[in-house]
Design a protein around this nucleic acid. Sequence first.
DNA 1: CCAAAAAGAGACCGAACGTTCTACCTCTTC
DNA 2: GAAGAGGTAGAACGTTCGGTCTCTTTTTGG
Lengths: 192, 192
Amino acid sequence: MARTDSTRPSEARTRLLNTALRVFYAEGIHSVGIDRIVAEAQVTRATLYRHFLSKEELVVAYLNEVDAAMRAQASAAAERGNSPADTLRGLGEAIAAGIRSPEFRGCAFLNAAAEYPDPGHPVHQTVLAHRQWFHDTVQSLFTELGTSSAEPAARHFVMLRDGAMAAGCLSDAALVCETFLRGVDGLLRVHG
Amino acid sequence: MARTDSTRPSEARTRLLNTALRVFYAEGIHSVGIDRIVAEAQVTRATLYRHFLSKEELVVAYLNEVDAAMRAQASAAAERGNSPADTLRGLGEAIAAGIRSPEFRGCAFLNAAAEYPDPGHPVHQTVLAHRQWFHDTVQSLFTELGTSSAEPAARHFVMLRDGAMAAGCLSDAALVCETFLRGVDGLLRVHG
DNA sequence: CCAAAAAGAGACCGAACGTTCTACCTCTTC
DNA sequence: GAAGAGGTAGAACGTTCGGTCTCTTTTTGG
């Protein structure tokens, strides 16, 4: 009973976030009511609203969770790769691995943007912020690579990724990954 | 029964469909209730439910409307272009023109799929059917073009399109179009 | 040991959801 | 001029939505 270790993040909050991550990603945001989330997280409404001011805030927290995971993924690729080209290839492989996983249901951010088209909405802004980070990260890698046109290359890379993520759950994932990785290879061949 | 079948497009039905097209595309599907649609179409609920069995059916009809428009777009490109390469370039230009238009809010089908992730759902199936048609159309053009790898080329083309359509309303449309058209050009250079 | 915070349980709110209903009107077409 | 389809009008259905409330129990820290 004297468990004084990690009580800070609040167990109920963690359960809430994990449930939101799983359910929002799998079924969409507007399709899922807070009743579902509260029930599956085994938490009462009052607890949810003690940790988050609104459903909207929970959605933003969910996206931030995904964002953190992708930043970790990018960092891991950067540590593994011993050159910018290697890192970009590794990033591509990591993306492909995600697409191939059975739970894959597209890009959480593209899906969220489809549900929150209003550019001023906090959820939409969260999507834009994530995408800005991703583009900047990729562009830095192309710059390190020494190409004269890092920005167009980065935009091309991101476009391929967006297409792959969007189509990954609407057609054969293996074929999508093959096409994507081939495209990344071509990009690296041109700019390397 | 059904004697004046083809003579009456029904004005109310047209208004309903046009309103659905505009509002669903601009604001998302789950975000818009039928109250909004009947109000903006200046039609009563009873009229809506005389023409469509449910909201779901209206959504499918909306997507079929968009599908018809894209098929017309593809046909127009085919008639204008005097070679398969020309047609593909024209198709790319038409897509870019759509992205550049101020009302652009992404791909209606990708957006719908984000809101209806269940593969068995009629709306999702409608999305899949449209995508199958598009892929087949592009693949035919690459085959006519005489390339040895029409299918991978078509998948690459579709992936670029998906990426461009997804990103078109999340970052600078002009830059997205430039990247997309450059990608299409590269694809045609390789396979032509 | 005791106070405060966190969590649980669940009633409750007004609004919006998709859907159905009855009743009346206005056209064609036979 | 009767029939019937399509349209209008608007109330109403039961459900679910996001969100708030009170009250009690458990956990935790000084």
